[in-house]
Simulated assay, not measured.
Amino acid sequence: MARKIPWIGTSWKMNKLRADAQSFARTLAASPVAQATNCQPFVIPPFPYIAEVAQLLSGTKVKIGAQNMHWADQGAWTGEVSAPMVKDCGATLVELGHSERRAHFGETDETVALKTQAALKHGLTALVCIGDTKAEFDSGQTAEALERQVRGLLKYVSKEASGKVIIAYEPVWSIGEGGTPATPEFANEQHIKIAALVQKLTGGSLPILYGGSVNPQNCVALANQSHIDGLFIGRSAWDAASYISIVQSVTESLS
């Protein structure tokens, strides 16, 4: 059976200035990855650069995302950004529930559920992050933590999620500088469990990406696992040439 087309993308988090964003987008637009048919590339810039990056990558296959959004369409939510605003800037994807949002900004399973519902209401693809903390991993609670978060994100959408929600498994202990990458085998085991739960809750399947210290050395081994449907890459893809190289290495290995 043919492999699914992998999603391969990167979030810049709170990095890059305008000139850096322009340079990345122009380099990517000029590369073969921009018109790739053997993967789905995506880039998630900081809010101030979404519109410009989207414009520079218009006419390509690259999807543009936002790093967060509010569940309300409008209102007295100072400093927040709504789904209509995200769409108006040219994004078609929104990242939700990242562990940094959960740890530092009060994100909960309930707010992730509300945001996922709002994203689907407005035709955005919701890329929802889930992950186990180091304490949960060390105490053997990974499966319970992931089940709680999957049930949470699907709370208000369930069967409507098909084709509109992507899950990214990002072990909290593997994210960021000094993070420890999960072994491909461990990551795949978690993806198998997540996929089974998704099937139970929605009656179908959702793409499940792996993120957490993905780098040029482990990207191929991770992407070739049976239940890993793509990669969500951090700092290893913040340089356009590095991102392009990872995409090409993965797609060549899967062809």
Score class of each variant (00 low, 15 high):
Val157Gly: 08
Gly179Cys: 09
Ile194Met: 12
Ser158Val: 09
Glu52Asn: 09
Ser249Glu: 09
Glu144Gln: 15
Ser11Met: 01
Cys219Arg: 00
Phe47Gln: 09
Ser236Pro: 02
Gln74Cys: 12
Ala237Lys: 02
Ala103Ile: 10
Ala91Tyr: 04
Gly9Val: 05
Ala66Tyr: 09
Leu127Gln: 09
Thr180Arg: 15
Tyr243Val: 00
Pro48Gln: 10
Gly97Arg: 07
Ala54Asp: 02
Lys193Ile: 13
Ala195Tyr: 02
Gln22Glu: 14
Asp88Trp: 04
Ser23Tyr: 00
Ser139Ile: 02
Glu170Val: 12
Gln225Thr: 12
Phe47Glu: 07
Asn38Asp: 15
Ser213Pro: 06
Val43Ser: 02
Ala113Ile: 05
Pro41Arg: 02
Ile246Lys: 00
Leu154Gln: 04
Cys129Phe: 14
Pro41Thr: 03
Met69His: 14
Cys129Thr: 04
Gly97Tyr: 08
Tyr156Thr: 04
Ser213Gly: 03
Ala182Asn: 10
Pro48Leu: 12
Asn15Val: 07
Ala118Tyr: 08
Thr180Phe: 04
Ser253Cys: 01
Met14Asp: 09
Leu127Asp: 00
Gly90Asn: 07
Ser162Trp: 07
Asp20Gly: 15
Leu231His: 08
Trp238Leu: 13
Val250Gly: 00
Met1Val: 05
Glu170Met: 10
Gln141Val: 01
Arg101His: 07
Gln217Gly: 01
Arg102Lys: 14
Phe232Arg: 12
Asp20Pro: 09
Arg151Cys: 13
Gln35Asp: 03
Ala72Gln: 14
Val33Tyr: 08
Thr142Phe: 01
Gln67Arg: 00
Leu28His: 08
Gly178Lys: 05
Gly211Lys: 00
Thr111Cys: 12
Trp173His: 13
Ala25Tyr: 01
Leu206Thr: 00
Glu95Lys: 03
Val128Thr: 15
Pro171Ser: 05
Gly9Met: 01
Leu124Tyr: 04
Gln55Leu: 10
Pro32His: 11
Tyr169Asn: 06
Gln225Trp: 07
Gln35Thr: 14
Gln248Thr: 13
Phe137Tyr: 15
Phe186Tyr: 15
His70Ile: 08
Thr37Tyr: 07
Met85Ser: 11
Lys200Ser: 14
Leu28Gly: 13
Glu52Ile: 06
Thr116Met: 04
Val86His: 10
Trp7Tyr: 15
Arg101Glu: 11
Ala168Trp: 10
Gly79Asp: 05
Gln141Cys: 06
Asp109Val: 13
Gln74Val: 06
Ala145Glu: 01
Ala36Pro: 07
Ala135Cys: 03
Lys61Cys: 11
Ser213Thr: 03
Glu252Leu: 08
Gln190Lys: 12
Pro181Glu: 13
Lys63Thr: 15
Gly163Pro: 04
Ser11Cys: 12
Ile8Gln: 11
Trp12Leu: 13
Ser205Cys: 05
Asp109Trp: 03
Lys4His: 11
Cys89Ala: 12
Ile192Cys: 08
Gln117Asn: 08
Thr78Leu: 14
Met85Leu: 13
Leu206Asp: 00
Pro184Ile: 12
Asp138Tyr: 00
Leu201Glu: 15
Ser245Asp: 14
Pro216Gly: 04
Ala126Thr: 05
Thr202Pro: 01
Ser213Phe: 03
Lys134Thr: 15
Lys16Leu: 11
Gln40Val: 15
Ala34Val: 01
Arg26Met: 11
Val53Met: 15
Arg102Pro: 05
Gln35Trp: 02
Tyr210Ala: 07
Gly203His: 13
Leu124Ile: 11
Val53His: 05
Met14Asn: 11
